[in-house]
Amino acid sequence: MSEVILSREILRELEEIGKRAYPDEGCAILLGDTGNPGIKQVKELKNTADKELSKSFFQVNPIEILDIEKEKNAVITGFFHTHPDQRAVLSKEDEDYMIPGIIYVVMSIVKGSFADIRAYVKEPDCGGIREFDI
């Protein structure tokens, strides 16, 4: 597998999260079904980074993720975040925080509007990072 399938509806939801968070970074968790490829559900996450930092940084309370994985009968497929007025490429920090095998979708929001979306996955051995087709 070297592609991520996003329905128009999911894409629209992600765009809305990005636009709503602008000029701060927005973030979400991407959920799928066991045994089925693709992303079936998006759940917005709270960016807990300090107000001054949130324009160029995001972080999520891990307990929020723990609650989601215990509550939801779904598989965690990936994480999503936005880069306000920046490119949809991974920063060094993004790469450092990537868990191998999990899909990371990055959306560029320029002046409040969608500009680009890309998906990346870290190799299982923490080696390189592959870009996936969307």
Partner: peptide
């Protein structure tokens, strides 16, 4: 004891 993911990141340099 919980082993949890750190979900975070930053924007690329300007």
């Amino acid at each position: 004891v919980l082993l949890l993911p750190a979900v975070a990141g930053g924007a690329p340099r300007e």
